[in-house]
Design a protein around this nucleic acid. Structure first.
Length: 198
DNA sequence: ATATCGATTGACT
DNA sequence: GTCAATCGATATA
């Protein structure tokens, strides 16, 4: 399995498309490896009023001004973490929000991280709701500020190239924002039942 | 200094 | 459909 090619992150919109189908590998302290396939992303560039980088560099967003292929993790609504992959050249504040993923391995651990009861477990409903939103995904994969700025080419959080790109991509407006609402910067795998919203 | 709101989620009417 | 949770960033004074 090949690590994510950073050349694919030079343009944030291309990056958001390219990340679909890629795999996130998260290694926990006890050695458990959680794997999930990205099925939904959103692009945020520096000229975008909806982006955290719109007003320039700050302590909070500085990771997005660094090199591509690192983690930008932010805290929101007083209780949630969200995970982004930094994009574009150093000095350019851009990133891709990872909005949803399809759980592949370590599902029991993800359930525990999400505090979901695991009775007759493995119901498709439970599986679909494990990572079908940015804060859910971060919680399931134990991604928080301890991984701020982390190089995604190294454990304990890595991204690998898609082993298969034979799927249809839908491009639409983003979710949960009040600025630049008409920008078509959200991408998802059309056939996936693991996305946050149709 | 104080007020508002957020790249969200889950519980509830 | 509505709304609380809960805190840091941002807007307003």
């Amino acid at each position: 399995m090949k690590l994510l090619d950073r050349r694919a992150l030079q343009d944030v919109t291309n990056a958001a498309r390219h990340l679909l189908g890629c795999e996130i590998h998260r290694t926990l302290a006890d050695g458990t490896v959680l794997r999930a396939k990205i099925v939904e992303t959103e692009a945020y560039h520096q000229k975008d009023p909806a982006s955290h980088t719109y007003n320039g560099k700050s302590a909070r967003n500085q990771a997005m001004f660094g090199p591509a292929g690192h983690a930008y993790v932010y805290f929101t609504y007083g209780l949630h973490w969200c995970f982004n992959v930094t994009a574009e050249a150093k000095g350019n504040g851009a990133g891709v929000l990872i909005r949803a993923a399809e759980p592949l391995t370590g599902i029991t651990s993800m359930q525990q991280n999400r505090s979901l009861r695991a009775p007759s477990a493995q119901s498709s409903k439970m599986l679909y709701s494990l990572c079908n939103g940015p804060a859910k995904l971060a919680q399931a994969l134990q991604i928080d500020d301890s991984l701020y700025g982390h190089n995604l080419g190294k454990p304990p959080l890595q991204i690998f190239e898609a082993d298969n790109r034979d799927f249809e991509i839908v491009q639409t407006t983003r979710v949960g924002i009040n600025k630049a609402v008409n920008e078509l910067a959200r991408f998802y795998v059309k056939s996936s039942p693991f996305i946050s919203k149709p």
